[in-house]
Design a protein around this nucleic acid. Structure first.
Lengths: 115, 115
DNA sequence: CATATATATTTATGGCCATGCATATTAATG
DNA sequence: CATTAATATGCATGGCCATAAATATATATG
C-alpha cells in the first residue's frame, strides 16, 4: 500500500531476493518460504511484510495459511528505470551533450540539464 | 573489477542512484557530481570507488581530473534478472506448477524444483 | 473449549555502512 | 621546488536494519 519504499532497497537484501525468487513461479504460504530461506520464521514474516508494503507481493488468507504472490507493479518500475539506460549497451554511448557544456561553467553550478 | 558485489545493493543507496543518474547522459569528473550530489566530496569519491569495484563505472584520468563513465555490464545483469519476471505483467501469472506439489510434502523439505 | 498449527509482532542486539572531517596523494602551475 | 587544485583515503561516529527469541493472534481440530 505504500509506494514510498524504493524497489532497489527492497531487492538489496539477499534474503528478500531469495523470497522473491521463491515466489517467481507461483504463490506460496509462509512456511514454504521459511524452509528455503534458511532464517527464522519471524524474519521471513517481517520481510514479507516489507515486500507487501512496497507492493511486491499480495496476501491471500487460506485457512490458517497466508498465501503470498508476486505483484507486477514494482517490476514494471524497475524495468522502466533500467530502460533509461538501454542505449548504454544497445548503441555506443554518445559523449556529446550535457557533459561537455557542463564542464564549461567550471566555477559555479548554474543549472542541471538532466533533472 | 570485482563482480561479487550485487547490483541491487549498489543501487539501493539514494546517493549512488543520484550519481548513476548524473552519469546517464555522459561522462563526468568528480567535482561535477559533487555539485549535484549534495554530500561531501569524500563521500562521492567513496561511492564512485564502490561503483567502480562493482563494474558500474570506468575511470579515465584526464590531467588532475578523474572522469567517470557508466559501463553496460551491471545494467545488462539487472535487465537479465528482471527479464525472468516479465511474464508477471505480460501474461497472467500461472498458479500451477511447483507451488501446488510443494504444498503436498508439508512436513519436511525434500527438494526444491526452482533452484 | 482446549490444544495444536500457522503466522505476526514486540523487544533487544549486533553489525554494517553512509557521512564528515582531516589528511594524504597526484598533478598542474608559477 | 612551493603552491594550489582535484581526488582519494584513514578514522570516528551515528543510525538504520536484519536477525533471533519470546510472545501474541488467529484458525483449525478434537
Amino acid at each position: 500500500m505504500a509506494m514510498h519504499i524504493n524497489a532497489f532497497e527492497m531487492l538489496a537484501d539477499p534474503t528478500r531476493r531469495l523470497i522473491v525468487e521463491a515466489l517467481r513461479d507461483g504463490e506460496r504460504p509462509v512456511n514454504d518460504i521459511v524452509r528455503r530461506a534458511g532464517i527464522h520464521q519471524s524474519g521471513v514474516s517481517r520481510h514479507l511484510r516489507l515486500l507487501h508494503d512496497a507492493g511486491f507481493v499480495s496476501i491471500r488468507p487460506e485457512g490458517r495459511r497466508r498465501v503470498y504472490a508476486l505483484q507486477p507493479g514494482p517490476f514494471r518500475e524497475l524495468e522502466a528505470w533500467i530502460a533509461g539506460y538501454r542505449r548504454l549497451w544497445e548503441a555506443r554511448l554518445d559523449r556529446f551533450g550535457a557533459a561537455l557544456e557542463e564542464r564549461r561553467n567550471d566555477g559555479a553550478a548554474k543549472e542541471e540539464p538532466g533533472q
